[in-house]
Design a protein around this nucleic acid. Sequence first.
DNA 1: TTAAAGTATATAGTTACTATATAGTCAATA
DNA 2: TATTGACTATATAGTAACTATATACTTTAA
Lengths: 273, 273
Amino acid sequence: MSEQSHKYFTTGEFAKLCHISKQTLFYYDEIGLLSPYIKEDNGYRYYTYSQYEVYIVIELLKDLGMPLKEIRNFLNNKTPIEAIQLLTSQLDEIDNKISKLQHIRTIAETTIKIIKEALEVDWESITVENLPERTLLISQHLRHATNRQYLNAVTDFIDLCNKHELYTGHPIGAILAEEEILAENFGNYSYLYTEMPSSIEKVSTIVRPAGQYIIAYHKGNDKEIAPSYHRIFEFVKEHQLAIKNFAYEEYILDEVAVNGAENYVTKIMIPIK
Amino acid sequence: MSEQSHKYFTTGEFAKLCHISKQTLFYYDEIGLLSPYIKEDNGYRYYTYSQYEVYIVIELLKDLGMPLKEIRNFLNNKTPIEAIQLLTSQLDEIDNKISKLQHIRTIAETTIKIIKEALEVDWESITVENLPERTLLISQHLRHATNRQYLNAVTDFIDLCNKHELYTGHPIGAILAEEEILAENFGNYSYLYTEMPSSIEKVSTIVRPAGQYIIAYHKGNDKEIAPSYHRIFEFVKEHQLAIKNFAYEEYILDEVAVNGAENYVTKIMIPIK
DNA sequence: TTAAAGTATATAGTTACTATATAGTCAATA
DNA sequence: TATTGACTATATAGTAACTATATACTTTAA
């Protein structure tokens, strides 16, 4: 080395310091992002401690999703003021990233909870249970919608859920009116719905009231749900009950946990008089 | 379409629903990650709502850094139990990601604070100020270290900081013993140090005591710090003061905020008797 | 002095897309 | 019914940020 008295890291040493590969340092040198302080005639690279500080900033910005080109452009023309501005704007970016991760966490937790519950119940069983009150976000009215209108409604409803970060991993369910049940038009849903933490202004919500509900399950494709409703009808007759208002259907096992519609499990909840 | 009565999304509609491009859906079909429910003879693709639920899981796992191949392998052989296991393991992954982001946030905040402070002071000024007590993490002793030993010490010290997530964006400073100052061996540091929130077991820390300190600044390369110390000596003489123990030097403007060593600013703090 | 360990360049491959060119299909209007 | 514009498809090339591999030179430690 030309300046033997100086304190320089070789490429390998500097790579270890940064916990990255030597190849990555070559690449960073090539694109002008982080070039060694000294490059000898034999091509050997030497880095200083200050460049480690720069690497820390590069890593920070990279982890926040900034492209290397932009990082390079910032570093090559930086002033203290610009550094403050950039880092300050990144603080908001970090906060967004954190709240997105917290949202993802909620979704994962809810999904786990639902699958676990699904594995614990006997899908053949029909029971009467007391359900607590729930606030439900609902779609536009669907009862007489064409396929096209139905698809648009699904899209709108999902956008609505995402817009307010209301999607918490709870599946999107469907509400079937008593008349449609009795007329055996099982595909003719009135609304889509999803559970929400609590009522939020400016969005249409309904309350699924607390009370006694028939809880039944349907295994298989939605389109072949009729036999499951027939089982419910028999149960109702046998126990001298009467259903009222709406049936609430939601997938508790779907493509997320099982393969193929024939293995899906739908939970059916119907309030009784 | 062969089954006109069914509720299918076209590729464009499904892409909008997922907020991704059509091209990405082609790609996901190609790699077998997410294929349409129906592919017509003319090549037209049709997707169902269930596939949106799958997309949500793909997006979740992708956002957590799982490669698409692994996601595909999971989805193709999934069971409810495996889905629970995977999602549960991802909860820890999410928590790690969140705490990493919080750490990055701390580093960014500290860096902003230091640059702001640096812009507020007059680098020519020499003052006497009362500094509060600080806990400092210190490196191994460096005073008579060779360059090689010095480089290893820097590496070890940085690893130590990272290991305990003790690096908070405070620069790494250096401690210079009184004897070395008086002998004008300004490069012969005793220790590296960095500020820590408070004492942590199992790591060597020292306390920089509260008290009166001379605060001076040096603009330019570390190697040319002598004139700045001479200014301090004059100040000491003029005000009939006496320095004691150690000088604490730290960069307040370095390659992170300015270009080139000639623009770096070092803050020098020396306790007085 | 020689072998191991380290350094370099050059080239190809990878992942998860994006962009572009070309062509077939569908649905609403003229 | 014809046609036009909005859609659909495939195929190919390009991109970012690396990683892997081959080949060759240099340094360092035995």
